[in-house]
Simulated assay, not measured.
Amino acid sequence: MSIVYSVSRYPKDDERPDSSTDVTAVGGTAWAELLGIPLEQLVDVHPLTREHAERVRQLTGITLDLGKYDYFLEPSAD
């Protein structure tokens, strides 16, 4: 079993994402370091905030527009 990591974008005040980008190539270790949690605990959905925005852009090329959207790192089993 492997883990697939996605960055999902939700319009503010909406429960459905309008986009999801596979960011598995970045690797779980980099995501765990960014979020400040052990890799083995990187199994839940985690919000991405202003403090994460620049590093997310460096790792993925995704610019977080936090004024219009909420972003989450969503791991899932493949």
Rank of each mutant, 00 (worst) to 15 (best):
H52P: 09
S20D: 11
Y69P: 04
V56P: 04
V43P: 02
R50Q: 13
R50H: 07
D13L: 00
D65L: 05
S76C: 02
R16E: 10
E33S: 14
P17V: 09
R9I: 08
D65T: 06
V7D: 00
D70V: 07
T29A: 10
L39V: 13
L73P: 08
L64M: 10
A77H: 12
L73K: 00
L64F: 10
V56A: 07
I62M: 04
E15S: 03
W31P: 02
W31V: 13
E51M: 12
S6R: 13
R16S: 07
V56M: 09
S19M: 13
Y5N: 05
A30I: 07
V45G: 04
E40T: 15
K68H: 15
D78F: 00
M1W: 03
Y71H: 10
A32L: 12
T49N: 06
G61I: 01
K68Y: 15
P47C: 11
E15L: 09
Y10M: 09
E51Y: 12
G67V: 00
S8Y: 13
L39I: 15
L35T: 04
A25H: 08
T24R: 08
S76G: 08
E40C: 15
L59F: 03
D70E: 14
L34N: 05
S6L: 11
P11R: 02
R57F: 13
L48H: 03
G36I: 02
G36F: 13
T24W: 01
R50L: 14
K68Q: 15
I3C: 02
L48R: 02
Y69C: 10
P75T: 14
V45C: 03
E33Q: 08
A32S: 15
S8R: 14
E33V: 10
V26L: 01
S20H: 07
D13S: 07
G27P: 06
M1K: 06
Y5C: 05
L34I: 09
A25V: 03
T63V: 12
Y10N: 09
T24M: 11
A25P: 02
L59W: 01
P75K: 04
D78W: 01
V7M: 03
D65M: 05
S6T: 10
A53M: 11
S8C: 10
P17M: 02
V45W: 05
R57Q: 08
S19R: 15
H46Y: 14
V26E: 02
T29Q: 10
E74A: 12
L35S: 04
A25C: 04
L59G: 06
S2L: 00
L48A: 06
T21A: 09
R9C: 11
V23Q: 05
Q41K: 15
S76R: 12
V43H: 13
L34H: 04
P47W: 06
A25F: 09
L34P: 10
I37R: 06
I37M: 12
V23Y: 07
I62A: 00
P47T: 06
S8G: 04
W31D: 01
M1D: 06
D44F: 15
V4G: 01
L73Y: 02
G36M: 14
P11W: 01
V45A: 05
E54H: 14
Q41T: 14
S19V: 06
G36V: 11
L66T: 01
L34K: 10
I3D: 00
G36L: 10
Y10E: 09
H52I: 12
D44S: 14
V43F: 12
T60S: 06
Y5I: 03
G27A: 01
